[in-house]
Design a protein around this nucleic acid. Structure first.
Lengths: 131, 131
DNA sequence: CCCTGTACTTTCCAACGCAAAGCAACCCGC
DNA sequence: GCGGGTTGCTTTGCGTTGGAAAGTACAGGG
């Protein structure tokens, strides 16, 4: 079996793509919270991200455990309400992630521009067959 | 349980984030292949994305089944070699995905600029306690 | 009282990613 | 010419995860 020479040659390994952040639902939540730094209520967030209750609850916990958001349990009268906000660390990590995304996007656009018309050439001196 | 009003209010649902594409390893593979439209050999791709053999094999199949890449089995002398290329559909879907990413990135940068200094204000008329 | 609604939490299961093991063909030394 | 190593992948097995559904808790309303 072959060895991996780490990121020396691996320019497309995308090490910066943090698993916790790189996830549809969570990315949506964090984006919402970045746009609403004062925090969002459980149901506001749920609607913004189009998540089910259970789903949101689950992902919220993940983000909280990771220290990316802070969760406040509150009441008005006696109705419980949960408020979520980004932490400072959350902001930082999110922006770091976004920077990686930006890089990927730029590279992709660059690549797609560069490789517009590709010849049908496979490698010569080989016999290829599909699939 | 609450209903989801679809994407009317759900501006952060990120429906465009195709699951097949939105995945570290696969995103890396596709980026590599976009940058090398003539195709890449199994091991070239493996090194570029810093993947193990098994891993690459698995993800390649997923991408192939999704119609995003085409796979050519070939030989030189008698050594087998696998060549992978983007399909036209692959290119399209990838760029669509990248456009969504771009949007997310721009929104995030915008949001982070806008919400620089946030007051510590929670919602008034409530009693909050952490976690 | 009970029943409906709100506000979440927990449970369960299928799908997925990843590492390790497996397989097949070739090449080399002796 | 046949064992052992190498190359080039594939397959298997397992631990983790995301998501739907079910569950809990409490608060009005009839």
């Amino acid at each position: 079996m072959s060895k991996s020479e780490s990121s020396d040659t691996a320019q497309y390994a995308f090490d910066g793509l943090d698993r916790v952040l790189h996830e549809k639902a969570r990315l949506g939540m964090l984006s919402s919270l970045m746009a609403n730094p004062q925090g969002l209520l459980f149901n506001e967030l749920k609607d913004l991200c189009n998540l089910t209750d259970g789903n949101l609850s689950r992902h919220m916990q993940v983000l909280q455990d990771a220290g990316l958001v802070e969760v406040w349990k509150g009441t008005q009268g006696k109705r419980p309400q949960t408020l979520v906000r980004m932490t400072e660390q959350g902001r930082e990590r999110f922006m770091r992630y976004i920077n990686v995304l930006e890089q990927i996007v730029n590279d992709a656009i660059e690549a797609s521009r560069a490789g517009k018309q590709v010849p049908n050439a496979r490698r010569t001196g080989w016999d290829w067959s599909p699939a």
